[in-house]
Structures are given as structure tokens and as C-alpha cells.
Design a protein around this nucleic acid. Structure first.
Length: 416
RNA sequence: GGAGGGGUGGCCGAGCGGUCAAUGGCACCAGACUGUAAAUCUGGCGGGUUCGCCCUACGAAGGUUCAAAUCCUUCCCCCUCCA
């Protein structure tokens, strides 16, 4: 079964992380005999990472699990410039305080997946502001810039595509890959980091870093990318009306995170288990053998495992229990979004439109109205016919009133 | 600096004086069918609404007109070619 010498490369390959590598055999040989230090870079533009970052976070976790040392590199320095790629409008640039606050929040997510410390295989959190902030333009150009030829940079996919499509490409962005390449060298110098990983869209930037390392430090560096993770029907992961699937519980409750995984397409269950959980491969194989409606068991397992990794087993089981009550019993579980009202407010009655908006089940009153007109809104499992309906004391007689938008999104109104 | 072309809703992309809150596609939401799946079909998809309408919106600001995303002026930004 094992086609590689090292546990690291075997794991990455068997679990579906492998897309491209600069020199897989050498990496494999090295990983078999020594501790490899590898990193992934992350943007610090928001106070939370999202589902799109999860593959690479799991890769760092796999490194640690197989006896190597992961580095999570926060782009505190590069964030100050703002990556202009794919953006129409100039992003509002963040100041140091905002960036550092973001990094502090994001670190909590990493704490879930990685063990930090000073040991040989303990994870390290770095911030590229530590070196990028201090760069001096002329010395940097002379020492680093001389190793990049425009000819070569123009052949990079990210550049070429933009130019072919006649899309603007700023000098700032052109420099972005140089800074990213320089990060790699800096991590090599400071921590002996010899591996950079990332999504397939990062391939070009990663290769530049590998080259730069060889030229500047005669270092033997490796680049490794993962495939772009899409659903089987080809959609990018994590797109819903509610927005991105955030990893920070302040932005997305564990219950909603659980539901995201619970709603995985049939064809993706096994693949996602390999990528996003620690389940052993033989156990995953058993779930993959399930057919038809039985696949739902696999989805529950997937949702439980992924949620437990990020939010802890307690939160995961609570989410699972709420989902079970809500969908299998048709009652309502405690983890649903809840709104509390006092007796007087309930006696007067509160508009379902307002409640739908407050519980984030509709973006606006207009949307809530359309939901009701379309027959998608229910109060205690009874279709709401009147868009101006009120929720009153009688509706919470059982302790709480359950408000539903479609079959999947539910919320509770309680007497405070 | 000169000559052309362009900036439209989350994205792509039509419209080029009224019938335009703006065709179409993607994405998204709901309904039907189901297994909290996919596919398919149907409806919806700026905000408010006393459902009469009222606001806001086609890069920005002015102007012409009964009427402007559409015409004019100035400004900002992008692309191509020339210098």
C-alpha cells in the first residue's frame, strides 16, 4: 500500500492533498530520515479564516501528526499592502492594530488544529511583518530583485492570464510574488524551513520562492500544492447566501458549521473525510461503501468529526443532537438561533418579518415577505399565510416557538 | 503627451432618449420530487411599503429634456496603439 518511504508523503498522497510538488521523491526521501519544517501563508484581512483555508490547515496538522514541524505564517506585512488580485476596488487598508487583532483571533483557530510550543515538532506561528516591515527598498532590490527576471515573471500563469484578458495588473501586485518568495527564504534562514505548501493557485508564487532560496542561500527547498477543492458538482466550497463558512465561532456558530458538513453531496463524503477528519482510511472505506439513503450516516459522521476538530467534541455532539431533534423528530434543538422576548412583548405580538430578519433567516423584510409569499416560512410547522402575522404568547406555549425558513433553517423565539 | 476603446446589479454580460429596478447566463433563496444528497421542473432574487406607490441605483459631479443607464460638459479610473 505504501508507495512512498515517508509517512508524511504517504499520508498526503493517500488522503488526497497532493496536486503538484517540485520534487516529490526527494521530499519523500528527506521526510523519511529527518524532521521537515514546512509552512503555509495566510492572509490577515479578516478576523477569521474560512473553509477555503481548511485544506492547508489540515496539511499542517498532517505534518505534525507524521513527526514534522508546521509553521503557520500570518501575512501581517503583506496584508498592509493588500493583495490586489481579483479585486475590482482597492481594499481599505488595515492598520497595525486591526491586523494584530485579526491575527490574535485567527491564532485561536490554529490552536485547535496544531500544538504550539518549542519542541522539535511543535508548531510555530510567524508574522511576515517581522521582516517585511524592516526591508529597505534599495538593498532589497539589489539582493533579491536581481534574482527575478521580468521574462520569467511574465510567464507566470497569474500574470499571463491577466495580461491576456487585458486585465490591469499593478506593479504592486507584480511585487507580491517577490515578497512571498522572500518569506520562504526568511523562514528557511530563521527556522530551517524547507517546504512551502498551498493551494494550486499558489504554485507560481511557491516556485519563485524555491528558486530564490537556491539562488540566495543555496538551499534545497520544496513546494507542494493541493488541488482546488470543489464539490462534485463543480461548485467552490463554502458558498451560501449566508456568506462564507467561517472557522471562527464568533462568525459562524458550531451548529451552522455542523449543518454545512451535514449537507455535503453524496459523492463527496469519502473524499472530505480523508481531507478534513482524522478518521482512519479503513473506517472511511466502510462509509464509502454505503449506498443510497445510508450515505446519510456518513454525512453525520463527517459533520461530527469536522465539527469536533474545530469546535471540540462537546459542541459537536450538541450540534448533532440539535440537528437530530430538529430534522428527525421534527421538534427543536437548543443550538438553533434563538431570540428571547419578555412577557409584555409577546403579549403585544411581534411581527414574523422582524423575527426572520433578527435571526438572520432573511436579509431584509422584503426577502422575508417573499419567503412567506412563496410558502417557505413556517411557524411551529404550520405554513405562515399572512406576511404580517404576529408571534404571540400562545405560540410559545410549549416553551418556545419554532420559526422555519425552508426546510433547513430554523430559529426559536422564547419567553425570557 | 497624442489617438482610439471602455467603466452597468454578488460575478459575467446586454441595453445606447421614454414601454428600464434594467434581457440573458452564473451564483444564491424558496416550492415540487427526495434521503437535511444530486439531477430536473417552477417561482423569486436593491430597500421600504398602509401593496396605491415611495426611495436608492447603471464610475463621480453638473447640464440639456416633459423624460437620461442612454445626449452634452468636467473630473476620476482602466485598456490598446503611438511618443
Amino acid at each position: 500500500m505504501a508507495t512512498f518511504k515517508s509517512e508524511l508523503v504517504n499520508t498526503l498522497s493517500q488522503r488526497g492533498y497532493s496536486h503538484q510538488c517540485t520534487d516529490l521523491d526527494s521530499l519523500d526521501a528527506k521526510a523519511a530520515t529527518s524532521v521537515i519544517t514546512g509552512y503555509v501563508g495566510y492572509d490577515a484581512t479578516a478576523d477569521s479564516l474560512h473553509i477555503g483555508n481548511l485544506v492547508s490547515i489540515m496539511m499542517l496538522r498532517r505534518m505534525q501528526q507524521t513527526g514534522h514541524r508546521p509553521i503557520a505564517l500570518m501575512g501581517g506585512g503583506t496584508t498592509k499592502i493588500g493583495d490586489p488580485s481579483g479585486k475590482d476596488e482597492t481594499r481599505s487598508l488595515l492598520d497595525n492594530a486591526a491586523i494584530n487583532a485579526n491575527i490574535a483571533e485567527i491564532q485561536k483557530t490554529f490552536d485547535r488544529f496544531l500544538g504550539f510550543g518549542n519542541g522539535k515538532t511543535d508548531a510555530i506561528l510567524m508574522n511576515n511583518a517581522d521582516w517585511l516591515d524592516k526591508l529597505e527598498y534599495i538593498p532589497f532590490l539589489r539582493d533579491v530583485g536581481r534574482h527575478f527576471t521580468i521574462n520569467r515573471m511574465l510567464t507566470m500563469d497569474s500574470v499571463k492570464l491577466r495580461l491576456e484578458r487585458e486585465q490591469p495588473l499593478t506593479f504592486l501586485e507584480f511585487n507580491y510574488m517577490i515578497l512571498q518568495g522572500y518569506d520562504f527564504v526568511e523562514l528557511f534562514r530563521r527556522h530551517g524551513c524547507t517546504l512551502q505548501m498551498g493551494g494550486s493557485d499558489q504554485w507560481g508564487n511557491i516556485v519563485q520562492g524555491v528558486d530564490l532560496g537556491r539562488r540566495l542561500s543555496n538551499a534545497d527547498l520544496f513546494g507542494f500544492t493541493t488541488p482546488l477543492i470543489t464539490t462534485s458538482s463543480g461548485a467552490k466550497m463554502g458558498k451560501t447566501a449566508a456568506g462564507a463558512i467561517w472557522l471562527n465561532p464568533k462568525r459562524l456558530a458550531p451548529y451552522d458549521y455542523y449543518q454545512f458538513w451535514r449537507n455535503t453531496e453524496d459523492a463527496d463524503v469519502g473524499r472530505f473525510m480523508k481531507l478534513f477528519t482524522d478518521m482512519p482510511l479503513d473506517e472511511i472505506a466502510r462509509y464509502e461503501a454505503l449506498q443510497g439513503a445510508e450515505i446519510n450516516e456518513g454525512k453525520k459522521k463527517l459533520a461530527l468529526e469536522t465539527t469536533a476538530l474545530l469546535h471540540g467534541m462537546d459542541n459537536a455532539t450538541a450540534a448533532a443532537e440539535t440537528a437530530r431533534k430538529t430534522f428527525e423528530e421534527g421538534t427543536a434543538g437548543g443550538e438553533l438561533p434563538t431570540m428571547s422576548l419578555n412577557a409584555a412583548e409577546l403579549a403585544a405580538g411581534i411581527s414574523v418579518l422582524d423575527v426572520l430578519v433578527k435571526l438572520s433567516m432573511a436579509e431584509s423584510k422584503g426577502e422575508a415577505r417573499r419567503l412567506i409569499r412563496g410558502g417557505g416560512a413556517k411557524l411551529n410547522d404550520v405554513k405562515i399565510e399572512d406576511e404580517n402575522a404576529l408571534i404571540r404568547t400562545a405560540d410559545v406555549a410549549s416553551g418556545s416557538a419554532k420559526l422555519s425558513a425552508g426546510k433547513k433553517r430554523h430559529g426559536l423565539v422564547k419567553l425570557a
